[in-house]
């Protein structure tokens, strides 16, 4: 028997929240197509297909209502976030593996929607980058730098049939974060690295615009009150502060706050991944702590780790801490101390 309340008023039901999230990703996808070529669309399409396929399979195996759960769009959101974190034009099986780890391992083995401890897209990314470091670091070069920008048809060929006639050097490059790291290791001074064409105004050429579009999408989510300000603000602030501190300590070895904010997955992580409510801390204070931790770790992993980007590992590490953070940041309940605000 269910009791009151008898009238429900839901601004966005869970499936609609997911749809809004996807909507907010569109500007960044558009910018990506414009600046890096249409390759990303292949990744998005494949990830979506594989993710929904695995979701269907697992739902069937678990004997859960198919149509109902497929309509919630959560598999699609995971797929898109994964595709946006992975290099464009990766081989098709990489997407398949990614979708498998995201949907089957990270989501359903933990109990399905709402039960997973770790962000599925980030788990998949982490597994892939550890297992296939080469494939996972060959990113599409910005269109204006690439010798050749693969068309959509060519992109399909590349993903399914491998490189064929095209040399990878023609259309891929390291990401600015990766590039910076290797350059600095070889002793190239910071200003000289930054002067190279791979870099744009503040971050990577092209990438910085995509990051800006993620910011725009995030602003939309904030405006719609689908996320609260706590996580993105704390995340980005922590990235900026940590990066600034490192730069102040050793300007020759560390890029500044703006570069870190505009590069890699910082913006995507701040607005779309760290804010995943299932795996994030949920109290207001907890969110600040959680996101600040993730931002801080992101820069530290970027600066001292061996991987090109630290967002995924930072978020996964904080995912572990989220339940504990929640326990220690429970807000004051009405009528327990306090008084006039």
């Amino acid at each position: 028997m269910t009791g009151s309340p008898y009238n429900l008023h839901v601004r966005y039901a869970t499936p609609q929240i997911m749809r809004q999230l996807m909507l907010a990703l569109l500007p960044a996808i558009g910018a990506h197509v414009w600046l890096f070529g249409p390759g990303i669309l292949v990744g998005l399409l494949l990830c979506s297909l594989f993710a929904v396929g695995f979701e269907t399979l697992v739902l069937l195996m678990r004997g859960q209502p198919l149509g109902f759960y497929l309509r919630d769009n959560t598999a699609l959101v995971t797929a898109w976030l994964l595709a946006l974190s992975m290099p464009t034009l990766a081989p098709w099986w990489l997407y398949l593996l990614g979708a498998f780890f995201a949907i089957v391992v990270a989501k359903h083995l933990y109990g399905g929607l709402g039960q997973n401890l770790f962000n599925p897209a980030m788990v998949a990314y982490a597994v892939l980058i550890v297992s296939f470091p080469i494939q996972m670091t060959q990113w599409a070069a910005p269109a204006q730098l690439a010798a050749h920008v693969p068309s959509l048809a060519e992109a399909f060929d590349l993903v399914f049939a491998g490189q064929g006639a095209l040399s990878p050097d023609a259309y891929t490059s390291a990401t600015p974060l990766d590039h910076l790291k290797t350059q600095l290791r070889t002793g190239t001074p910071m200003p000289k690295v930054m002067g190279q064409p791979l870099y744009g105004q503040v971050g990577g050429s092209g990438g910085e615009v995509v990051a800006l579009m993620f910011l725009l999408g995030g602003a939309y989510l904030l405006g719609r009150r689908l996320i609260t300000w706590h996580i993105p603000v704390a995340f980005l602030a922590a990235v900026a502060v940590t990066a600034s501190l490192l730069q102040w300590h050793d300007p020759a070895q560390h890029a500044g706050a703006l570069f870190h904010l505009a590069s890699g997955g910082a913006m995507l992580g701040a607005f779309f991944i760290a804010t995943d409510p299932v795996t994030a801390a949920s109290t207001p204070k907890g969110k600040l702590l959680y996101a600040a931790g993730a931002g801080c770790l992101t820069v530290i992993i970027r600066a001292f780790g061996n991987f090109p980007d630290g967002v995924a590992f930072a978020i996964l590490l904080m995912n572990i801490a989220a339940p504990l953070i929640d326990v220690y940041t429970q807000p004051r309940v009405f009528g327990t101390g306090g008084g006039k605000p």
Partner: peptide
């Protein structure tokens, strides 16, 4: 509370 997880009507 027992509540349905199956849709009773299209949403």
């Amino acid at each position: 509370p027992v509540y349905t997880l199956h849709p009773t009507r299209p949403h």
